[in-house]
Computed example of a mutant assay.
Amino acid sequence: MKFCIVGGGSLGLLLTAKYTLANIPVVLITRTKEQAKIIRRYGLQLTEEKREHAANFACYSMVEIKENDVDLNLDWIFLMVKQHHINLSLGQDISTLMKAHTKLLCFQNGIGHEEKLSSWIPSNKIYLAITTEAAKKNSAHKVEHTGKGNIWIGQESQKSESFDKSEKKLIKSLSDAGFKAQMTNNMSSIIWNKLLINSVINPLTAILKVSNGKLLTSENWMQLMKNLLEEGKLVAKAAGIETEVHLWDQLIEVCQKTSNNTSSMLQDILEGRETEIDRINGGLIRLASDYKIDVPNHQVVFNMVKGLTN
């Protein structure tokens, strides 16, 4: 099978490096020509468990793909850009890369991207992925694997417990590359569990400018974490989503296991980039409004993060 990763961010670089080192055919498509040129010149450097690995593979920018009419004949496309980068242009570009047998696997935080992508991609070809893998992009061609986790994959509407040959091969490829991955028919619940955890950790670390573990050092901060989580659970319940019973314990565990990590939202704030606040807390706020549920804590952190990026 042939795989393509769209997005040269931290997780995109991590998966590309791990696939290459496992001798699995993979192509990386970056947003800019500059990053593609750097990777072609120097290769990709992966730091993992204090060891450095060099990976070389086919790499193009999306512009170069179109300019040179590159035909990749892909089985799976991993879409690993942030949700706010999914627009008409990217959607059309992805659709041109897809053959009759190609499937799209989406690694976005938040909610709403599947509906957006279905404007250009048939819904039955769209798969969703949730991961707790952690990585840090140190430069255009350097990435550090900062935490091992799991990858869950499925289609939001899938209820069957049987999976086809291409799905099984996908899971095998991820396993061969060193990841713990599984197909699931409970994707909606998994997406919401991560959404609720992200909606607590990401904005608070961005506002307070602290690592994930530091949130557990203040009783006041932890009370705010509980308030955010409970508001989010009310919205999930109204939407008919069954969340984990021990979600608070999972939230604490995530903070502990990623104690020294800088959340993606804090990284965006520090680098002056657009954050995913509109797709995470903003998505919850919009749904809460539909269900006439008050979420004042989410509204406050949403406004504060938006203020930091103005």
Rank of each mutant, 00 (worst) to 15 (best):
K2W: 06
G9H: 02
L15P: 00
A17N: 07
T20Y: 01
V27E: 04
T30E: 13
T32R: 07
T32W: 02
Q35H: 03
Q35E: 12
K37D: 15
I38A: 05
R40Y: 04
R40T: 11
K50I: 10
K50L: 14
A54Q: 13
A58N: 11
A58Q: 10
S61K: 02
S61I: 05
M62S: 14
N68S: 08
V70Y: 02
N73I: 02
D75G: 11
D75I: 01
W76C: 06
W76N: 09
F78Y: 10
I86M: 05
N87I: 10
L90F: 03
D93P: 00
L97P: 09
K99P: 01
A100S: 15
L105M: 14
C106G: 08
C106W: 03
E114L: 14
E115H: 02
S118L: 03
I121G: 01
L128F: 09
T131H: 01
K137V: 12
K137Q: 15
N138Q: 12
S139Y: 04
T146S: 15
T146W: 08
G147F: 02
G149N: 02
G154Q: 01
Q155L: 09
Q158K: 12
K159W: 01
K159V: 11
S160H: 05
E161Y: 01
F163G: 05
F163Q: 04
S166M: 05
K168F: 05
I171R: 04
I171M: 06
F179Q: 07
Q182H: 09
Q182W: 07
N186W: 00
M187R: 06
S189K: 11
I197V: 15
S199E: 06
V200M: 03
I201G: 02
N202L: 08
N202E: 02
K209M: 13
L215Q: 11
L215G: 06
T217Y: 04
E219R: 10
N227V: 13
L228G: 07
L229S: 10
L229I: 10
E230A: 12
A238V: 03
A238M: 03
G240R: 04
I241R: 02
V245L: 10
D249P: 07
E253H: 08
V254T: 05
Q256N: 10
N260C: 01
N261S: 05
S263D: 03
L270F: 03
E271Q: 14
I277L: 07
R279E: 14
G282Y: 07
I285L: 12
D290S: 08
Y291E: 11
K292I: 13
K292M: 08
I293S: 04
D294H: 06
V295S: 03
H298C: 02
Q299H: 11
V300Y: 10
N303R: 09
T309W: 00
